[in-house]
Design a protein around this nucleic acid. Sequence first.
DNA 1: CGGCATCCTAAAAGATACTG
DNA 2: CAGTATCTTTTAGGATGCCG
Lengths: 124, 124
Amino acid sequence: MTHPFTCGLDAVLFVMGSKWKPLIVYHLAHRTLRYGELRRSVGKVSDKVLAQQLKELVADGIVARRDFRQIPPHVEYSLTPFGSSLSQALTQLCEWGTHHAAELAEIAERSASGTKGEPVTSAQ
Amino acid sequence: MTHPFTCGLDAVLFVMGSKWKPLIVYHLAHRTLRYGELRRSVGKVSDKVLAQQLKELVADGIVARRDFRQIPPHVEYSLTPFGSSLSQALTQLCEWGTHHAAELAEIAERSASGTKGEPVTSAQ
DNA sequence: CGGCATCCTAAAAGATACTG
DNA sequence: CAGTATCTTTTAGGATGCCG
């Protein structure tokens, strides 16, 4: 048991398998950010979700949280060395996405127009 | 509009952002597989989910489907060149996961035992 | 054998309101 | 400012059964 991981990939997915985590790591890879900055960077994410995923990332040793214990609050997030190595492993994937952004955008549009109403029925 | 991609990463997540797709791509990276082989390789995945994700991957130009049009059916899946390049971009991440499998397994155990208050009561 | 249709559950995500 | 609590919505995933 317990690493039910069939390959390194689902091991990764275990810690990164949620909508915003890769983005969080990506943004923190550039620099340390305060909570509010991070929220704005990541985009349209709610406090609940961001705080929750952040907490998990901290628990998983990927993100470090530094609380200045002030009023008003001041909390900074950054990557741990472990998280940093992860962010580097993401680089290749990120570059692939950037490189194929055009194709991916087309794909996105295509599935956006026919996802529910019409299954993609690739008659092939 | 429509590539609301803030970086290459969510572009990738758009096509790979589901539980089994990375694994499917991973297994097909080794060799062409028949539907049944793939299902067994991937692990505990239902037909509905596998077929669905496979269809999306085909629609997205990542996986190629070859139907021999026979009875009994014989269908083979393989990566397209596009999918192949994606699988290579996943390599680094996969290696990271493999390399850190031990830490990740610990993390998995920890979150399994004490994440919220009590574990996911999934008797499974 | 390789699916697809239906139904169902669990988990993720989101909106909103409120607090130290 | 940085969250937490609560509720609702959305989505993914799974079990089963049928059909070509």
